Simulated scan of single mutants.
Amino acid sequence: MRILQLIDSLDAGGAERMAVNYANALAGVISFSGLVTTRKEGDLKGQLKAQVSYLFLNKKRSFDLKALFVLKSYVVENQVSVVHAHSSSFFLAFLLKLVHPSVRVLWHDHYGESEFLNLRPTFILRLSLPFFEGVISVNQKLKQWVEQKMHFKNTIYLANFATKENGIKRNTVLKGEVGKRIVCLANLRSQKNHLLLLEVAKILRVLHPEWTFHLVGKDFEDAYSAEIKKLIVEYGLKDRVFIYGSKNDVENIVQQAAICVLTSKSEGLPVALLEYGRGKKAVVVTAVGEIPEVVQNGENGFVVPQNAELFCAALVKLIENEPLRDDFGAALYQAILNSYSEEKIIKQYLKWLQQHSK
């Protein structure tokens, strides 16, 4: 089998990480594994294994004929049989199918606003999905949505998986006191609800002032980012909450945390949560998307509503009980190994592809 991953950028986001993870994982088990990024290269390019064939299209607009035919030539030259399009790259995969009908195209739906699917635009999806052979969803809500709303039948839920970083230097050193750091891996988007995290930090500053919060993820320097920075000052948190931007050395960052958190108001299956589990970290997370399927409240972490007081109370339980942190971290690690390993997901993926080969 010869499979190509298609992604619009290689910035450090969840869909982008999964495109890289699939390309790397498949490189050792199929005859050809490639990755094409359409619009923008980024930090994740450095994590591609040497065995993965790579192409950057430098696409300039939604309908870019030059990029389309460069992609077609690459697919033909490398005898690609399956194009696995992640997130918004589905439209280019649709155009490729029109000019190269023999290629099989799949769409991997990483839509992060799965709690608000009623607001999702559907016109272009309705136009293009009939040309796709299958749809992969990162949580059950997305799978049900594409089946019921889009009337698409060949769909599968495949969990995200985290992998060991490939050739990344451990450069990032977190501020704050060792053993008293709380890490949040999330790009600065409103969906990730950092504003709730700041409310939590404001409460915790009174209860445990020595503990600090560390926000790692792409800063888009937009209005949402400006609001976060303004509230950090207004809440008196300049020496308690630190923003680092996008970083490659995620494993290194997670290892420096005592507790890891997600305050999202909507999610698919966050890769960050899998990274926390691989690092054996205790977590406090909100009950959105597929998160409650991974974290069993009170067994391998705390799952709480989007409420600052309740979130803070769960944090305090972990802060004041180091053995509980260790137990939760070990239990979450085992859950990730059992259900969200690279080997298990890739085996399910290839079996699904073979079963539905036309």
Rank of each mutant, 00 (worst) to 15 (best):
M1I: 04
L6A: 09
A12G: 07
G13M: 05
I30Y: 02
K40Q: 14
K40E: 14
G46A: 13
G46R: 11
Q47W: 03
Q51I: 03
V52G: 12
L57T: 11
R61Q: 15
V75N: 01
N78R: 14
F94P: 04
F94K: 05
V105W: 01
V105N: 02
F123K: 13
R126Y: 11
K143L: 15
V146E: 13
K153W: 04
N154D: 09
N154H: 10
Y157K: 14
A162I: 08
A162C: 10
I168M: 04
V173F: 03
E177R: 13
K180C: 01
N193G: 04
L195Q: 13
K202M: 02
D222E: 10
S225Y: 10
S225W: 06
I228S: 09
L237G: 09
D249L: 08
V254E: 06
Q256P: 06
V261W: 02
L273P: 01
G277K: 04
K281T: 11
E293Y: 01
N300E: 08
F302H: 06
V304M: 04
V304E: 03
P305F: 03
E309I: 02
C312H: 00
A313F: 02
K317P: 01
R325M: 15
D327N: 13
D327P: 00
G329Q: 05
A330C: 07
S357H: 15
